[in-house]
Write a protein that binds this DNA or RNA. Structure first.
Length: 244
DNA sequence: CTATGATCATCC
DNA sequence: GGATGATCATAG
């Protein structure tokens, strides 16, 4: 309780202290265009981003490199990175049949019981982070990550009414399960586009996070054949091309 | 501690 | 292989 209060207090403090948005999304997209084809692995040391420490991988290295490229210092504010839009970097790998697909689900943001109880979908951190973003796709070659080229940087807006409704439904289901069965009942089996999963260290009680399932990431990137329930019309706009 | 950036490790 | 749960580096 004390820890929770402190956490909440710190959270408010951080939110209050959060720097004002600086980079607009259009500006960021123009800047990011210059990152396509670049090797994030080679850029990491130039930005002082740790890739590995004592044999332990810094799992967020790629995202941190792109943040630094855009001039955003590391922080832990639970709000969209640039005020009204969120930046995400996702690993893409080439399936055996040659199709490019998301390699992992994507962590969106964390939540606690209070958030679920009080916040409707319209006012949730989940929507806040999903509604307007820029997704940077990078190639994943293997655990060693000898290099990682940026494949594309695409804007995504959660403006499709049908998709919005389904994600809202996922959120409501998660709220319902938490209310009726408790937080421990929230497992990754829940949700069509967005799933709740345990997240956070500490042997005992960790928190939970919302994760975008691969199909949602594929949809954001305009990738086809990656498990989207809907049909996948050819989309040249995103132009994901594997370079080398 | 909890949040950010995420991926790793294990189980089915 | 893919999905689910556990975990790593860093910052306030």
């Amino acid at each position: 309780m004390i820890a929770a209060d402190l956490g909440a207090a710190v959270g408010e403090q951080l939110a209050f202290t959060a720097p004002a948005p600086t980079l607009t999304r259009p500006d960021a997209l123009r800047r990011l265009a210059g990152l396509v084809g670049r090797d994030l692995r080679a850029l990491a040391p130039l930005y002082g981003v740790t890739f590995e420490r004592d044999g332990q991988r810094n799992k967020g290295w790629a995202g941190q490199v792109v943040e630094r490229f855009l001039g955003l210092p590391p922080d832990a504010f639970q709000r969209p990175d640039f005020g009204d839009w969120e930046l995400k970097v996702v690993p893409i790998h080439e399936r055996a049949d040659g199709v490019l697909v998301p390699r992992e689900t994507m962590a969106i943001t964390m939540f606690n019981e209070d958030d679920l109880e009080r916040l409707a979908f319209d006012e949730s951190h989940l929507l806040e982070k999903l509604r307007r973003q820029v997704v940077v796709a990078r190639i994943f070659l293997g655990p060693e990550e000898p290099r990682s080229l940026v494949l594309a940087c695409v804007p995504f807006d959660l403006d499709d009414p049908a998709l919005l409704t389904e994600i809202a439904a996922d959120y409501e289901e998660i709220r319902w399960v938490a209310r009726t069965s408790g937080l421990p009942a929230l497992t990754g089996r829940i949700g069509r586009w967005v799933q709740p999963r345990p997240k956070g260290e500490g042997h005992g009680r960790g928190g939970h996070g919302f994760y975008a399932k691969k199909a949602l990431i594929a949809r954001m990137l305009g990738l086809s054949g990656a498990g989207t329930p809907e049909d996948d019309p050819p989309d040249a706009a995103s132009g994901l091309v594997l370079g080398r």
